[in-house]
């Protein structure tokens, strides 16, 4: 799941940012911490060029991990985080936003989803439309790629915090018995989707949005019972390494996720117009997917992409400035 990947990614600090931080001899008016995933890189640059254009300030983009960004927001080193994912970062938000009150979240949220997806071909031709269909071995046999008659479903990367939850969901729903659950890097999972789409072969896989795969292929999310907090009983491996799976039960969809822009409270006090501008930024999930696609699939340079985006969205910038 993107949020958890991002959470993991956030633990790292790019060499460039360390060098920039250590060797900083001049100061921009504002520093945007830039995460290393595509939409975060695009939105960080869009924020930079939009503020420079509309508010006339000098803005620097620095690549760094999320936890470092939050520490920077707290200390005054960093002013803005372009994409704070929740519920993944609930504990960090609690610390800096609720308790220390050194960081504020923009009220505008971008909705995110996660669950199981299939190509349209899989749903229409092979009748796998709902997670309940995965319990039917006759249906899932078409997902077999290793010749044992049992289908396979990629549930995420081994390092993602969403992956054990996907395993819990599979066990709770009952399809852990009928399909083989695969854990491997995202590039392998996505290349399998590419190969399946190229040969009209059915495939079911863990998915999250916003994500460029939805623009690359015709993807349909499998239906399933709505999230119900009373039925979402998750014990993570870190909390109980031996019994997390048997102690957990979650036969429902994921809770809705979202992300927001964050900025330092002091920055908002120092530059109220910046706080207002950031609080008005209202990226849509579709725009985030386009950003992810432009940088990940089309390999566009984040800064160049952001400048084009700014040029093409003068009306949005105008609205954010009010």
């Amino acid at each position: 799941m993107v949020a958890s990947t991002r959470l993991l990614r956030r633990s790292g600090v790019a060499l460039g940012s360390l060098m920039a931080m250590c060797g900083a001899g001049f100061a921009a008016d504002l520093v945007v911490g830039m995460p290393n995933w595509p939409s975060g890189q695009a939105s960080a640059n869009i924020i930079k060029y939009a503020i420079e254009k509309k508010l006339g300030l000098d803005v620097e983009v620095r690549e760094m991990g999320t936890l470092i960004i939050f520490a920077g927001l707290d200390s005054g080193e960093v002013d803005i985080h372009p994409e704070v994912w929740q519920p993944n970062l609930d504990s960090v938000v609690k610390k800096y936003v609720d308790e220390r009150k050194s960081v504020q979240l923009s009220p505008k949220k971008v909705s995110a989803t996660q669950g199981l997806c299939a190509t349209r071909e899989t749903t229409e031709k092979f009748g796998i439309k709902d997670v309940a269909d995965l319990k039917d071995p006759k249906k899932t046999s078409v997902l077999d790629t290793d010749g044992d008659g049992q289908g396979e479903v990629w549930i995420g990367a081994e390092t993602w915090s969403s992956t054990p939850i996907e395993r819990i969901r599979a066990r709770s729903y009952g399809y852990a018995e009928t399909v083989k659950l695969l854990e491997m890097p995202e590039d392998v999972g996505m290349a399998a989707v590419d190969a399946a789409a190229a040969t009209n072969t059915p495939i079911v896989f863990y998915c999250y949005s916003p994500h460029h795969v939805f623009n690359l292929h015709e993807i349909v999310q499998l239906t399933e019972p709505e999230y119900d907090q009373a039925k979402w009983n998750i014990v993570l491996p870190a909390d109980d390494p031996a019994n997390w799976l048997t102690k957990s039960n979650a036969p429902v969809a994921w809770a809705p996720s979202h992300f927001q822009i964050a900025f330092a409270t002091k920055t908002g006090e120092r530059l109220p117009k910046v706080a207002s501008f950031l609080s008005n930024i209202d990226f849509t999930p579709e725009e985030i997917t386009e950003m992810s696609y432009a940088l990940e699939v089309e390999r566009q340079d984040p800064a160049a992409y952001a400048q084009q985006w700014i040029a093409a969205h003068a009306d949005r910038l105008e609205a954010w400035s009010k």
């Binding site: 290349a191 190229a198 460029h212 699939v297």
Partner: peptide, 9 residues
């Protein structure tokens, strides 16, 4: 040569 939509370079 086949059509092959992918994010891989």
């Amino acid at each position: 040569i086949v059509k092959f939509r992918t994010a891989e370079k």
